[in-house]
């Protein structure tokens, strides 16, 4: 990656962070946006790093913690925000809300909030690539908890059996709801499960955006050469609760603090400052631009029309 691209990577992480901070702030006022916001604060490197390794034709299938994945795949902040606001101008005309945004325009085909639900679908989109001899890969995002669902095992087994071009990208943020990793599985690494299906598994520092980028890029090459699938586990941490309603009573304060020390944004920023690829001024400029993007998204959403109630009847069938 050249310096320009590295700066883009930093910028994407910052956009994800600020976009979601805005969501959390707005959700405090039910007149603005209703319901619980599920955000990836602290995990931005996994989204941004993987997104940077993908081409427009690559497909992503994502889960409930999806805003970062969508933004990194190139989805429009305005249209995501409008969807979360429930407006007609949102990606899915208000049908989806924050939890199920589909942006087929950028091949973000499915956000599912059914834990593990996306994993077999990713196997299916990868099958279509192989069947049609097309050069794209699928990246499937899921959490450590999702690997306890039967769907995970069935999908990884089939994907490996047929050498499908799919990257199973697990964001291991230590928790699944209120359960810690050691309370929901005996394995120490989700990547260790790969061997059971005969595929390659790899552990990556999930707070190092460049490391994630490189791992996904390698896996992408492998998939395209017919040597897929690959299971990548990004070790990271959920700074906040499961969602905004969660008071995190079960999360040790010192654990949160120690992971905040490993902030993926600060890490890349420091690296770039050190090599001279970035100046403080560049960074401030980035912040300003992103603030404008996020404010603009909110303005777009707030001034967008609500759907007419009867529009609820549309889009069930083709």
């Amino acid at each position: 990656m050249d310096n320009q691209e590295k700066k883009k990577l930093l910028r994407m992480m910052l956009l994800i962070r600020r976009f979601e901070e805005k969501l959390v702030a707005l959700s405090k006022d039910p007149q603005k946006i209703g319901g619980m916001m599920i955000v990836c604060t602290g995990q931005e490197a996994a989204a941004a790093g993987s997104g940077a390794a993908l081409l427009p034709e690559d497909v992503i299938i994502t889960n409930h913690r999806s805003h970062g994945h969508l933004l990194a795949k190139g989805a429009e902040p305005d249209l995501i925000m409008a969807e979360i606001f429930g407006r007609r101008t949102g990606y899915n005309k208000g049908k989806s809300g924050t939890l199920h945004i589909a942006a087929p325009e950028v091949n973000a085909l499915c956000t599912t909030t059914v834990v593990g639900g996306g994993i077999p679908i990713a196997m299916g989109t990868a099958f279509a690539a192989q069947y049609q001899q097309k050069d794209y890969v699928t990246v499937c995002y899921f959490g450590n908890g999702s690997s306890d669902e039967g769907s995970f095992h069935e999908a990884l087994n089939m994907a490996a059996l047929w050498n499908l071009p799919v990257i199973f990208l697990c964001e291991n943020n230590v928790y699944a709801g209120a359960q810690r990793m050691e309370e929901h599985t005996k394995v120490q690494n989700i990547a260790d499960r790969a061997i059971a299906y005969g595929m390659r598994g790899e552990i990556v520092d999930g707070n190092d955006a460049l490391a994630v980028y490189e791992a996904v890029q390698r896996a992408r090459e492998e998939c395209l050469s017919g040597a897929g699938p690959v299971l990548i586990e990004c070790k990271t941490y959920r700074w906040g609760g499961h969602g905004t309603a969660d008071e995190q009573l079960y999360q040790p304060q010192d654990e949160i603090a120690s992971w905040k020390e490993k902030c993926p944004i600060n890490k890349l920023k420091a690296d770039l400052l050190q090599t001279g690829a970035l100046t403080e001024l560049d960074y401030q400029q980035m912040e300003t631009e992103i603030e404008q993007i996020v404010d603009q998204a909110v303005q777009f959403a707030e001034t967008s029309p609500w759907p007419d109630p009867a529009e609820a009847l549309e889009d069930v069938y083709v």
């Binding site: 209703g34 429930g86 407006r87 005309k93 208000g94 049908k95 989806s96 809300g97 924050t98 939890l99 199920h100 609500w306 759907p307 007419d308 109630p309 529009e311 609820a312 069930v316």
Partner: peptide, 8 residues
Amino acid sequence: PVPCSKPL
């Protein structure tokens, strides 16, 4: 299916 947006 149950839509998300309030009016829907």
